[in-house]
């Protein structure tokens, strides 16, 4: 590993270990994965900023219907371009060790397309649309589905899911934490 370590000093690794859910070794693994996305750029500058379409080459993100949202959420410049540290943050949230509360926070932001801090009807429709990919639900089916979701989770009956309501749902859904993860 000696060769690969050279891009980071021990303190930096310690920093990363303290600030993410990774161990030092895993941080290096993440960096390798990051490097694969754009070997020449990252080889040059280990914290290079990769454009979003490069980051979306990462296998799990490529097929993920929310890939662009994920990039945008974690990008420090908010345009989807990710530096290594952004990428590390992303992987840290998606790793197994991250607690459900943290995952829920980020999931909420991923699903909140219009950024109004509420999952409104438009957001839910967008989420469903992306989930079913090439297939299409009819309008009435979609409305039915959205209505069902709201009926289940919208506790205060204001036509949108707030974070508290979202977190409650996610807490009760046993599969969330097993689904919301990306392996290294």
């Amino acid at each position: 590993m000696g060769q690969k370590c050279s891009q980071f000093t021990e303190e930096e690794l310690q920093d990363y270990q303290d600030l993410t859910y990774f161990t030092k070794k895993e941080v290096l693994q993440v960096h390798n994965k990051f490097k694969i996305l754009a070997p020449e750029k990252v080889g040059h500058n280990r914290n290079a900023k990769l454009p979003m379409n490069k980051v979306l080459q990462y296998p799990e993100l490529r097929v993920n219907p929310f890939g662009d949202r994920i990039c945008k959420i974690f990008s420090s410049s908010h345009d989807g371009d990710c530096t290594f540290e952004d990428f590390l943050d992303m992987m840290s949230v998606f790793c197994e060790a991250a607690p459900t509360a943290v995952k829920a926070e980020h999931a909420f932001r991923i699903f909140d397309f219009d950024g109004d801090d509420m999952l409104g009807i438009a957001d839910l429709r967008e989420v469903i649309d992306r989930l079913i990919g090439p297939h299409r639900l009819t309008d009435s089916e979609m409305a039915h589905l959205v209505q069902n979701i709201l009926a289940e989770a919208d506790l205060d009956d204001d036509g949108a899911l707030s974070f508290a309501e979202f977190e409650h749902v996610v807490d009760k859904s046993p599969d969330f934490s097993s689904v919301f993860k990306i392996h290294l």
Partner: peptide, 20 residues
């Protein structure tokens, strides 16, 4: 108290899937 539809939508996608 099981949120059937919510789980389907919010925990629907497996984020670890990587093949087309």
């Amino acid at each position: 108290q099981y949120y059937k539809f919510c789980s389907l939508v919010f925990s629907g996608w497996d984020f670890c899937i990587h093949s087309d």
